[in-house]
Nucleic acid binder design. Sequence first.
DNA 1: CCTTATTTGCTAGCTAAGCTAGCTATCCGG
DNA 2: CCGGATAGCTAGCTTAGCTAGCAAATAAGG
Lengths: 157, 157
Amino acid sequence: MAETRGAETAQDAAVWGVLTAVRAFSDAMDRMYSGMKGDMEMNATDLAALRMLIIREQREQPVSPHDIARHLRISTASTTKLLDRLTDAGHVVRRPHPRDGRARIIVLTERSRREFRMHFKDSVGAMRQVAQQYSAEDLAIVTDFLLRVSSAIDPEP
Amino acid sequence: MAETRGAETAQDAAVWGVLTAVRAFSDAMDRMYSGMKGDMEMNATDLAALRMLIIREQREQPVSPHDIARHLRISTASTTKLLDRLTDAGHVVRRPHPRDGRARIIVLTERSRREFRMHFKDSVGAMRQVAQQYSAEDLAIVTDFLLRVSSAIDPEP
DNA sequence: CCTTATTTGCTAGCTAAGCTAGCTATCCGG
DNA sequence: CCGGATAGCTAGCTTAGCTAGCAAATAAGG
């Protein structure tokens, strides 16, 4: 992540610093999710699927099993099993696609949304508390940065 | 970090925005790593272990199998198998601990470091390119924010 | 020193979750 | 209407996690 290239200017130093912070941050997020997987008694992939569904729901994008497979980079067969687990646990429902008889649309249950929010609320609260210490202008900079980096490293979504 | 009490709505909106961006960002990072796991023909946990080793190495902190187990939240038995895989693949070496006859110290091989950097360089390059579009002051804000959020959600490291 | 409790990493055997191959049903372009 | 492509599912194999339990080394108490 950080190359050992010497930081000659202040800007170079700042770039190096932010990349290091990005690494620490993604590590912390990783550990937060793996902690939650223990709390919710789920495996990492199933939890990642739920996260994806929440994100896509917020964007009002319908999600198919195929989408999940692509997003998580697992096979469609594994996705079928994953959806069996999530369905059995009452987290999601498979609905028929209105126009395509082969396809399904995966929908979160209200219970799942609630449970997810419940387990997330401490972490989200901690993050919000940090965020509230910054001005709206600073937050706009951070938001912009994060979104740009996101689309730079992951062009798909 | 002005606490603009007057502009409560704008600040709330900014907080909401940054939290959404954080979520999108961690999702993008996740997908970057899962993409890399395909490229390097490794599973997610093994890759996470390598990332941990790189981070700890940079901080000059020695890593024991027990540390890996705690960090990845897997059992020590699974860690033994993980280390068997990484050792067989030539990524790490188990060295004896200088003072504790029971303990081991896990050390990355130079080849592993090189391979890791090789596979990361595109993503790091993309991130650096984004970062370079910001002033040192803005990057300082972003860095500060990321580090604070990191320690808020994951006090351990 | 000697005994006991704790810690570290490993082994054995079980379970869970991913993969490939292949199937059916459906959609779409000619 | 028909042949190829696509969506999702099933079956069977393989991998990687878990629990239980072990030996060796350390730490603590007398």
